[in-house]
Design a protein around this nucleic acid. Sequence first.
DNA 1: TGTAACGGTCTCAAAAAGAGAGCAGCACTA
DNA 2: TAGTGCTGCTCTCTTTTTGAGACCGTTACA
Lengths: 134, 134
Amino acid sequence: MDGKIVNLKSKLEIYKAMTAGANFADCPVRDVMRGINGKWSPLLVMALAEKPYRFGELRRLVPDISQRMLTQTLHELQRDGYVHREVFPTKPPSVEYSLTDLGRSMFHPLYQLVQWAELNHEAVREARATFDAD
Amino acid sequence: MDGKIVNLKSKLEIYKAMTAGANFADCPVRDVMRGINGKWSPLLVMALAEKPYRFGELRRLVPDISQRMLTQTLHELQRDGYVHREVFPTKPPSVEYSLTDLGRSMFHPLYQLVQWAELNHEAVREARATFDAD
DNA sequence: TGTAACGGTCTCAAAAAGAGAGCAGCACTA
DNA sequence: TAGTGCTGCTCTCTTTTTGAGACCGTTACA
């Protein structure tokens, strides 16, 4: 493995942290990763990293999310402390979602991963084509 | 947002890339993220980043994965080009899984995210406790 | 002869996600 | 003043995904 970037000892520690325990409650890393790892969570965090959005705006922005999953995912992100939800007493009331400091801090490594995906999607595409050809 | 680390222009580009198109086929970034984002994929990539493992070893290492999901996740990781599967003609045949170059390159940003989770799991725990208290 | 390990597949039940109707409150229009 | 639309949801129903666990053929070893 690449020792220049990743030190083996700490890597082993993380790896052990992820595999320790028989259930999620026993493994903090997997517990946190689970909240980040959802189908819609990264997308919404990426969107909110740009600027705060209202419920309806997010819905129009991500046309293929169901209202149910948008509500639910935002609720989970709020619970985990990544997203702040603010209700404005307009008529009808509008609700704005924004990233918290914790959310912005999590955005940085997430962004690295998304950037990797952007740079390497062609390689993944090719790998799939080669694999499916057999 | 933090302009020191993330340039707004490229961030907007990524964000647009993630929200473009009505389905996955139209959005390469989400398409790739989907393969990385599975419930078990990050865990298996972390494990294989340490060293190659055989099927049974992975099963013992991650006791709460079902055999079905282990087979399926490894198959998907192999299809996307992150994992190499090698069969040795022993009796009975043994199968070794290892990370490819693409897999190792993806491991780096993934590791950043896992590291973030390790450093911040206490903050997430607290956020949840506060949220649930209301 | 019987049992165990290897790396799976198959079936069935449970959980999660998607589609879409319904809802209460207010503003605006006809 | 009746109708329509916008807000941010929740509820129900159907489809997809995941989980639990039995089964499988081959081979080694007791």
